[in-house]
């Protein structure tokens, strides 16, 4: 399944909605979206992950890039992450740098 991503920004909250498979082929596109959308004014990043079925280390690096670009004071929330994807994030310890929420916890 191909990777799809949308982004919207309102009142300092940047929300990405991801679907499909985020791997080494699709990661550069998402990386560019992060560069364009995550600006210093961002207060919070929300990633809707429920429809993301696969994520390799290339995708994980995108999440780390978003975290670095936003800055340490900006909260990052992953919503509805599937168990297999969440396991990859936890494996690397990056889950300690963000908040993982159940689906529906954020609009």
């Amino acid at each position: 399944m191909s990777f799809q991503a949308t982004v919207q920004s309102a009142q300092g909250v940047v929300t990405f909605r991801l679907s499909g498979e985020l791997d080494s082929r699709s990661a550069p596109r998402f990386h560019e979206m992060i560069t364009q959308a995550v600006l210093p004014a961002a207060r919070r990043l929300v990633l809707q992950m429920a429809d993301l079925s696969y994520m390799s280390s290339a995708g994980l690096r995108c999440l780390v890039y978003a975290h670095q670009r936003a800055g340490s004071g900006v909260a990052i929330e992953l919503v509805g992450t599937r168990p297999e994807v969440a396991e990859t994030i936890r494996l690397t310890g990056f889950d300690r740098s963000l908040t993982m929420l159940e689906a529906g916890a954020r609009p």
Binding site: S57, R61, Y65
Partner: peptide, 13 residues
């Protein structure tokens, strides 16, 4: 995350 070893770490684990 820039060492390139992250993917291999995930693979082996």
């Amino acid at each position: 995350m820039h060492e390139g070893g992250y993917g291999l770490f995930i693979a082996f684990t």
